[in-house]
Write a protein that binds this DNA or RNA. Structure first.
Lengths: 185, 185
DNA sequence: GGTTGACGAACGAACGTTCGTTCTTTACGA
DNA sequence: TCGTAAAGAACGAACGTTCGTTCGTCAACC
């Protein structure tokens, strides 16, 4: 009979928000997930919305850490793009609940937090644009395509991966990364 | 002061389900959308869930009609792929509410209806796989890529289009179709 | 012995839905 | 052409339930 911590509650919330959505998750259901009664959750958190804000904050942090790592490594545009793609895959597959909530449930947030998420996503997408432009400039990626549109395409593919990818299948992460980068040749 | 019909209620439901989700939409809110009080909706429909089933059914019909039309036209693999892509764009842009609900809210359905949607989506994706394989066979599309994976990539891009595409921008549907098909060269 | 986590009762509000009734439009026989 | 009945659409009150949340209490542990 281990004790539940605030982090446990947030993690469980991410799990349920990801599968049933924010509005589809009740505090009593969330309590049951942790072996608690609904009202007991308020020993750890202030409100249901605070839970969503926290999960989304963690999601944003994961993507930001990934992009920072990829860009710090340096290299050609193509090499950095590969790191961005691989990092994104790691985030959405290793933290499926948090990232799904970050990507799908941010629309429920109040205007301020929603704007924060939108800005963060735009900066993130900007990194993809920059790396694609860099690759066009240094010759490691084709020149013909618009970085803006290509960034959208790549992120569309990446964000949909958790919907179909199953570890242990014919394709592993490394090969999937290759396939996505090769698509841009 | 026009009268509301069953079709009006379903259309409004699609609109709200698409923007706020099924669980985020109350019958009273839906009523207000039509200038009605919540209970009045039950003159037109049997239950809230019936509304979701109906919207999803319409979504499935739209995609099925699109794929039928594209394949009936015949032509090379590349030509049919272009028709599939263009048809998909038309569906998700001209019926944004219905298609968004079909794509995002089907998980709320009971097991039977959910399975129906899954099967329908699989058939739909199968058409993309077939056309890609046809294109590889007739030489109109490159041979190197796996049709299964490529179909997933293309559909990932297509389904995300309503999230960023705005009519009247630099890129119109025709040009976007070209860009997506060109990605596979 | 104070702190912390959990409980269970209770709150007001909102939920989906039912019901009897009213109002408006349509259909049709006299 | 009129009068009237049937039908359709909307109302508002009320239902049982669930929602998020508050509060006082209690047991376990440092």
């Amino acid at each position: 009979m281990t004790q539940n911590t605030r982090a446990d509650v947030i993690a469980a919330a991410g799990r349920l928000f990801a599968t049933h959505g924010y509005h589809g998750t009740s505090m009593r259901t969330l309590g049951r997930e942790l072996g608690l009664v609904g009202s007991s959750l308020y020993s750890h958190i202030g409100s249901k919305e605070e839970l969503l804000v926290e999960v989304v904050r963690q999601g944003a942090a994961l993507f930001e850490a990934s992009v920072d790592k990829a860009r710090a490594a340096g290299g050609t545009g193509r090499e950095q793009l590969r790191e961005l793609v691989r990092g994104h895959l790691d985030v959405v597959l290793d933290n499926a609940d948090i990232s799904a909530t970050y990507l799908n449930e941010a629309s429920v947030l109040d205007a301020d937090h929603r704007r924060q998420v939108l800005d963060e996503r735009n900066r993130y997408e900007g990194a993809f644009r920059e790396v694609l432009a860099l690759g066009a400039a240094d010759g490691s990626l084709p020149v013909g395509t618009d970085p803006k549109l290509t960034a959208i395409f790549v992120l569309s593919i990446l964000n949909a991966v958790p919907r179909w990818f199953r570890p242990g299948g014919r394709l592993d992460r490394e090969a999937l990364t290759d396939e996505i980068v090769r698509l841009l040749e």
